[in-house]
Design a protein around this nucleic acid. Structure first.
Lengths: 316, 316
DNA sequence: TTGAAAGCGCTAACAC
DNA sequence: GTGTTAGCGCTTTCAA
């Protein structure tokens, strides 16, 4: 592969002139510009990205730490991030963490070694204290609220959202309400769910809280356990529509009617939810991702709250 | 940020020695190694990736061209690619194409400018002739079969898979069989679907072929049109379980029983399919992605056929 | 076992 | 307008 020196020699100019036409500088005579462009085209030449990145000190690549791909919620955020990156001519490196703190730190080091200009953290295992030092090397934006001024946020008011759901359930007369979550109290959204629950129904009965729910199958198992309880819950708030779908399936299989015997409400407005007529709260994660990208690209540390909306269908 | 020179100076050694400890070379005295490591730790030093990549001539980054993210089939492949990349310490840049040929070429240029070591094409709009020249700059692997020896393939025998489904439908007595597809005959899988159809049922009635189906909503609309036909099909083969789910929903909404009045079979074994008891053919796209990554990383041009399996549930 | 020095391919300050 | 040249931060001969 030819390099800039070869092009310069072949066009009979200096490397700086070639560099100038490459970077659309003014102050290049039309004659030389044309001559250089001709050689570039003939040689099918493209500048080496590593060399350009090295000297510029930036790569136009942004990282996205994502615990699980193939998970509807995170895929929605990724989708949003990708939407905007394509428009803005940035590239996205997807970094699957499985909530492994060491992996996260390893990924954050890509900021330090200048592979990445910025990092988007959709969800994390590390405490902020371990993450913040990396903000010195590139901007970090989170899809979850944090007060730390070093971190930009594109976030939801999850507490408000959960509160709204539990209150709705209470208004409908439910008193025995169960809920599912992916992780335990190390997770911000689980903590907010529990806080909102407590606000509405008082201290949650631990029996009514099912952890480790990510997929349809997890939901099925959750339904199995929760509906085997005595007394059994009359409503379940699932942490995703696929999980809700699993619960629905188990409930129907055991002869329960929805919402007569059991009310179910999910999250994220996924296709399975529309097919099953599941009510859901759409956190509009695609938009969260888009906003996160914009903050990252602009190295902004703003905190931007994103809207969510309840979608009423027939499962509650 | 300190550079290797600083570290060398502070440790009282030459840059080559620092480089050696960085790259775990033998022939470094324990004393110097320790001294250098100490400074590295104190300074929290990390080598600059662009500089390393520049001199090594490779980046350990692989690109993945994906028409649509937030599409179950492609997300499965991406998931597989990511699985293996994490194990092998490679990074993946996700390149959304929306089947735009110019975008694809732009992405392939990342091979030429050495940003990417290899490229995985999950699906494409360009003819192979336009793609192959880029194989000179880095290995290209496709998730679709092609005879071109320059291209590695991790592929399915889609023809066999489609044939099996149509034959099964025929055995069950169906004669009026419709099918859906995402794209038209520019798409390899659509062409294979039509060929298999023709093999079993003869030339397809164009009325029985619904294009532009990607999502649940598309499936719903497809159901609406297809089931409004006279005579209406007794079976529909959908190009994905979400599409199948949409069809199912429309069919049930219009009072049809499944599979009594209408048989439905989907593809990819997605959660919505398990909830609706939809039969499906699981093309095991996660494995296809994993294999594609391995080929790309090893710069292999092998053609590896991947297995699929029919999953019998109650919708046919 | 170690260091000096020659690049990798490019940009931009500086001089003309 | 254009060319010369000094780096960007690193790896790797080559010689010692």
């Amino acid at each position: 592969m030819a390099n800039i020196q070869d092009i310069a020699r072949m066009a009979g100019v200096s490397v700086s002139t070639v560099s100038r036409v490459l970077n659309r500088h003014k102050y290049v005579s039309e004659a030389k510009r044309a001559a250089v462009q001709k050689v570039i085209d003939e040689m099918n030449y493209t500048p080496n990205r590593s060399a350009v990145d090295l000297i510029r000190g930036e790569t136009k690549i942004i990282g996205a730490i994502i615990p699980y791909t193939n998970n509807q919620a995170f895929d929605q955020m990724l989708h949003g991030i990708l939407n905007r990156s394509t428009e803005k001519d940035y590239s996205i490196i997807v970094l699957p963490s499985k909530y492994n703190p060491d992996k996260e730190i390893e990924y954050l080091s890509m900021l330090k070694n200048k592979l990445l200009d910025a990092m988007i953290i959709t969800s994390r295992a590390n405490p902020w204290e371990a993450i913040i030092p990396f903000a010195a090397f590139g901007s970090i934006v989170s899809c979850e609220y944090t007060e730390h001024p070093e971190i930009g946020c594109s976030y939801l008011d999850r507490y408000a959202s959960y509160l709204e759901v539990f209150q709705l359930l209470k208004e409908k007369g439910h008193r025995r309400v169960a809920f599912t979550s992916a992780r335990g109290s190390e997770s911000n959204s689980t903590r907010q769910t529990m806080a909102a629950y407590e606000q509405v129904f008082g201290k949650p009965n631990p029996e009514y809280h099912e952890l480790g729910c990510f997929s349809f199958e997890d939901g099925y198992r959750a339904g199995e356990r929760l509906l085997g309880l005595n007394p059994r819950p009359t409503a379940i708030y699932a942490n995703g529509d696929e999980v809700a779908g699993g619960i629905y399936k188990y409930a129907r299989a055991s002869g329960l009617s929805i919402p007569g015997d059991l009310a179910i409400i999910g999250q994220e407005n996924q296709p399975i939810g529309v097919s099953l007529e599941l009510s859901t709260v759409d956190h509009q994660l695609v938009k969260v991702g888009e906003q996160a990208f914009d903050l990252a690209m602009n190295k902004s540390r703003e905190k931007v709250e994103m809207p969510y909306k309840l979608i009423h269908r027939s499962s509650i």
